[in-house]
Design a protein around this nucleic acid. Sequence first.
DNA 1: ACCTGAACACCGTTCAAGT
DNA 2: ACCTGAACACCGTTCAAGT
Lengths: 195, 195
Amino acid sequence: MSDRPYHHGNLRAALLAQAERTVRERGVQDLSLRELAREVGVSHGAPRRHFPDRQALLDALAEAGFERLGTELRSAFDRAGDDFEARLRSTAAAYVRFATRDAALLELMFAGKHRERSLQEAAERAFSVILELIEQGQAEGALEAGEADRVGLVLFATVQGIAALVTSGMVSAERLDELVADATTHFLRGSRTAA
Amino acid sequence: MSDRPYHHGNLRAALLAQAERTVRERGVQDLSLRELAREVGVSHGAPRRHFPDRQALLDALAEAGFERLGTELRSAFDRAGDDFEARLRSTAAAYVRFATRDAALLELMFAGKHRERSLQEAAERAFSVILELIEQGQAEGALEAGEADRVGLVLFATVQGIAALVTSGMVSAERLDELVADATTHFLRGSRTAA
DNA sequence: ACCTGAACACCGTTCAAGT
DNA sequence: ACCTGAACACCGTTCAAGT
């Protein structure tokens, strides 16, 4: 156990882990490459090997965020059993949980212009859970037939918007569950085949 | 016309105007108090009289943004004639227009924890247009009766979420109109009294 | 009341040099 | 291959001093 375990390839991971902590506790604008290097016990120039500039670190953080978001959505989806509406509510709840617990990270995930292809792909993987959900709903007749991605985007946008309203402080956190429930009900009724 | 017209009380306004320009062109993170002071022809310490720190300037920018957003929503609402659905679509379109044209400013408006009361109030004024819209819809029977603010928040969240998806680059700008139209239709169907 | 200008501590980025 | 340490230009913030 030396003081410097970062000669073996884990500096990148250590920087990312510390960065994620700092972002959660103090926000993106307080994230400094030099401070990060200090906390991790390395000279201020060392991170450059792994992240050429600050934006590269932020992109990597965003990508890791999408990775984790996808995992959490998938897990909520699987946990909820077979019923479509239960899966819908569970997945939506998982999204807002992520969004409120890691508000600064989510802001980061939505901030960039997403120029990196890997970032774009990670985002699409996270979104694929929602697509799957929509397709199940359509197959069961709970949702009208149509382009699943259009319907999915409307649902996703609504949940994302609610999270944004709450984390910005424009709506109090106590109203979160109520709003998500309202939105889900709204969505179901608006998408049900008229019949 | 001297070189220094900022001894008469318009320094604050000049700083805000230049800051808004910079934010639109280069984003919030590129906004520097020192550069702003230079551009406006004043020493770097001068802004401090009007904005004690950087955050104070950002708060003022956000407040001005809500002011302008409210005006634009109101104008779209008024322009649309008496028909409820036309007003709904016009107001939603005005929101996403603002959101995509001034994406960085909107990000700023949603970023803070909104500690300043005046900011909170400006946001509520902007939102009041949507409340009014909902109440008209309910009065006409196009929307089911219920707490207007809950219904309004769901609508607002959806439009805000769509704007976020587009400005983040996760959804291409060409799909904006399509998505807004889908969301509005969805909303109307989901809120229509069953009857 | 409003602004100046020096000072301080911090930053991102670059780059030659070390192992 | 990976990291160090000096250097540069830039910040935000503070504060005594000017008008």
